[in-house]
Nucleic acid binder design. Structure first.
Length: 280
DNA sequence: AGCTCTTCCTGAAAGC
DNA sequence: TGCTTTCAGGAAGAGC
């Protein structure tokens, strides 16, 4: 399930593999995979890929043709992948979009998504601006400590809900929310606005640390995630609690990691992540 | 504002 | 063994 680190890794590979490319042809398997701008598809033919960026969990490609710029936004959802020609797709029937490229390293860019949670958007500059504004809050790697502190103070909901609320902080999903909260020693159901300043500082650092480490290791390959070149991410090996119900707490506190159905499925150490503010 | 419920979708896991 | 049922899970939208 691609979250920020996986989208970041995908964007980085697309940058090296496809920037500068000339689009030879676009193929769409099922038109409903393009949620917006399907009628502009022909514009992209003969355009050039100028840049690739990540916003939240989405990957955004910029194309230019005749002085005009348009964009392709790929939402990866739970099971979506961007893949190069060389990467094997286990269920080829779930490839919904293919861009054939020339004048770059990769001859083909595919969008693969078996469950189809997540779509593609073909947008112009104002469309992209609206898309980003409506969907994404702070980028966790660029928000300041002050911005995060304000956000925490203004949010009376639960901490894990805030971390995963894309319009507030963009890019964190269930895996990384669990890992972040464990490392910060915070229970997912703590009320965000009641967290003390010292703890907010610690949480701010942990968010960055976890996400940057995950990027460094190529993201987490849980189930079917692969980078565009087909390689899996290895950060899963460093998960401390996600998917580890029944294992001893990595802090060696003696307790056992538990899976609880609070704020989606959460993996917590009941000792190291107490409901009250006091750390043991 | 924020919580819950529903919808989307299909492979995998559980159940029989 | 093999068929059937259940179930995650990100995000949007409705309703409260």
């Amino acid at each position: 399930m691609p979250e920020l680190p996986e989208a970041e890794v995908a964007a980085a590979q697309l940058r090296t593999g496809t920037v500068g490319a000339r689009v030879r042809e676009c193929w769409v398997g099922r038109s409903d995979i393009v949620r917006e701008g399907y009628q502009t598809l022909s514009w992209y033919q003969a355009s050039r890929i100028e840049a690739v960026q990540r916003h939240g969990k989405s990957v955004v490609l910029s194309f230019s043709r005749g002085g005009e710029t348009r964009f392709l936004v790929a939402e990866l959802g739970m099971t979506g992948l961007l893949l190069f020609h060389s990467a094997p797709a286990r269920y080829p029937q779930h490839t919904h979009f293919v861009m054939h490229l020339t004048e770059c390293r990769e001859p083909e860019l595919r969008y693969w998504n078996p469950r189809r949670f997540g779509r593609l958007y073909l947008l112009d500059a104002s469309g992209l601006e609206r898309y980003l504004r409506r969907r994404f809050g702070y980028e966790p790697l660029t928000m300041t400590r002050q911005e995060f502190t304000k956000l925490m103070a203004s949010c009376r909901g639960r901490l894990k809900a805030l971390l995963m609320h894309q319009q507030k902080i963009a890019g964190i999903g269930n895996i990384y929310a669990n890992e972040i909260l464990f490392r910060a020693g915070l229970h997912p159901s703590r009320v965000a606005s009641r967290v003390k300043p010292d703890t907010i500082n610690r949480l701010y650092d942990v968010i960055r640390d976890v996400l940057l480490e995950a990027v460094e290791f190529g993201g987490s390959s849980v189930r079917d995630y692969f980078a565009p070149d087909g390689t899996p991410g290895t950060y899963r090996l460093f998960h401390r609690v996600y998917g580890k119900a029944g294992a001893p707490c990595p802090n060696r506190c003696g307790a056992t990691v538990r899976r609880v159905m609070e704020e989606r499925s959460s993996f917590i150490c009941p000792t190291c992540q107490p409901r009250s503010g006091r750390r043991q």
